[in-house]
Design a protein around this nucleic acid. Sequence first.
DNA 1: AAGCGGTTAAGAT
DNA 2: TTAACCGCTT
Length: 460
Amino acid sequence: MGIKDLLRFMKPYVEPVDIKKYAAKRVGIDAYSWLHNGAYSCSMELCLNMEGDKMSQYLNYYMHRINLLRHHNISPLLVFDGCNIPCKSLTEQDRHNKRKGNRDLVMAKLKEGNINAATEMFQRAISITPSMAHQLIEILKSENIEFVVAPYEADAQFAYSTLDVEEGGIAAVILEDSDLLACGCSSVVFKMDRYGNGEEIALDKVLGSVRRIPSFLDFDKELFAGMCGLAGCDFLPSVPGIGISKAYALVSKYRNLSRVLSMLKYEKGNQMPQEYFKSFKEACVVFHHARIYDADSKRLKHLTPIPESLVNELCNELDFLGHEMSSFQATAIAQGRLDLSTMKPFNAQLTKPSESLPHNLSFKQGISVMEQETKPKVNVEERRCLSDSSLKILISPLKKNILSGDDAIPAKRSSPIPNNNPFKRQKKTLMVNKEQSSVVTQVEVLRSTGVDCVSEQESG
DNA sequence: AAGCGGTTAAGAT
DNA sequence: TTAACCGCTT
């Protein structure tokens, strides 16, 4: 995953960070990585789709971390991954198959009665379902926490949100894995623990740096991204014999990506796959011009505008970035109204099956192990963008929400909003002074006074 | 020295 | 599942 060995290579630039450094700033969060982490504590319940409190424990984990940020007066922006981009389809297919294998193993162990082995396997078989993401999104809405579902890669969405830090863009991105650096994200926080301690790489300290080794003097974002591409990433296999170190050496020697490429062509000759040069170009375009959602104009845009000359060079063929979407569709996705595995609105349970949209966009994180059997398989080759007409289904069940432009959808939660703020006491005193009109407040106060397991209905 | 494949431990409570 | 680590190979 990500760029091979990049983090190890960048070790000299990694610095410990306390998240309160970003007090009063906006910070981006990889929404799925926290979902994954939170799911460990209840992997079996999630996999077997068991009802009950334990199953929602991942939400507790989540709100704990959100509350940690709020405590430091940090405004979180949660970014969810959206649809797959075509050039990544091989990677996704692989994962899909592995999860399927894990599911078979779990069932075998369960039959043997080997509970220990089974629970271990459950943790490997976890995948985040659209409905889990949706549950979280409903809570985020009711708690007024900013979020966006990216049309495609969350990475690019992050990069877009960091473009104008002075005008309220995000100052850093918190994530568990992956390497935002290739997209040009200015500041990345890895491995943040429950107290807000993590490790950070600041790209502006990297580029132009002479003090540390490796030195990135004379590197710009384009060269840096090129280096990452050469080392191999999700949508581009690495050149045999070239890892991150050689990639760095080549780029710093030639300081120009096309010169590096012609050099490779010359040196490696027939070792280079025929498709490589085209794929490399496309990977670079993904890094710089991926499709993102622009919340102001409510449209799909490119991370940075694609120059006309580049479009011509690519023969007007931009579908490797993911298909173009209407403003209408992009907005529905961004606001979390669409289940991307079915392309149906989340709360349109009353919709007749015959009105279902075709399963032509795959949900990035896959579907749960138990759901895989019932849901039709997605053929990645057949993915096509939905037309506006097929989206009309959105209007009937959700008319008010969509036409009024109001983002809020009445939350239908089965579980109460988790409240496990590590700073409960301090919060409580603040809360008591406020008018306790909302369910949230009531639950929060009751909990902090020692009353547990208050359901929404009981308190309302 | 760098690449590459295989193994391992962590993550969550 | 993924990053980190180890040891063999180029």
